[in-house]
């Protein structure tokens, strides 16, 4: 465990907590894409099936359980508990355009042709694009609340920090996972436009609002 990975994980954890707090305190899921959150629930479920087959550490296991658990709570909040506040009219990204190609790719390009490994690969590929419905929603409504921006920033930073972690692990541990690295780069690139807006607007006290 190096500092980049630890801070990356903490950033991921923080993103999830920010999102849950935003929903709980405001009693609203306005501005949040339910589709992205469903994709994240699928990502965690398919990736962490190894909870049943291998043990890495108590840290690793508890984080996995937390990520899976909170992803379902989030989906429950959006589609049940705070459903009247869910803005489905603006959450219109067609997720099948992500799931089908990503599923096909995981089947074709993986480390090992086994069920668990294909599902792990699927989750890595899917995670890299899972934020697209959310980014699409922000661009469609042309705005994002500050709290939603903080959530997106923390969530995007996590994979960017993992890129540094992989550089570190390559040099100091000889560890290299091409699938994770390529997907991590794609994931981070997707956030670049948002990172720019976040730094130039949100950090200066303005909320993100895009020209119509």
């Amino acid at each position: 465990m190096n500092i980049f990975r630890l801070v990356g994980d903490m950033s991921h954890l923080l993103a999830i907590i920010i999102l849950l707090m935003k929903m709980w305190k405001s009693r609203s899921v306005a501005g949040i894409s339910g589709k992205s959150q469903i994709l994240f629930a699928i990502v965690f479920t398919t990736r962490y099936l190894d909870l049943f087959t291998s043990f890495v550490s108590i840290y690793n296991t508890s984080m996995k359980v937390f990520f899976i658990g909170t992803s379902y709570v989030t989906v429950y909040f959006i589609y049940q508990h705070f459903k009247p506040t869910y803005d489905s009219n603006h959450d219109t990204f067609r997720v099948e355009f992500l799931i089908v190609p990503v599923g096909g790719l995981a089947f074709l390009v993986n480390h090992e042709f086994s069920l668990l490994e294909i599902l792990w690969t699927f989750s890595i590929y899917l995670e890299s694009v899972a934020i697209l419905p959310q980014l699409f929603m922000v661009s469609k409504t042309g705005e994002a609340e500050s709290i939603t921006s903080h959530y997106l920033f923390a969530l995007g930073s996590y994979r960017a920090l993992y890129l540094l972690n992989w550089i570190y692990r390559y040099y100091f541990e000889g560890f290299f996972d091409l699938i994770a690295v390529v997907a991590g780069c794609v994931q981070t690139i997707l956030y670049c436009d948002f990172f720019y807006l976040y730094i130039t607007k949100v950090l200066k006290g303005k909320k993100i609002s895009l020209p119509a």
Partner: peptide, 10 residues
């Protein structure tokens, strides 16, 4: 090789 890949990251 046991054919099992261990993923130690989250």
């Amino acid at each position: 090789d046991t054919g099992k890949t261990l993923h130690d990251e989250l």
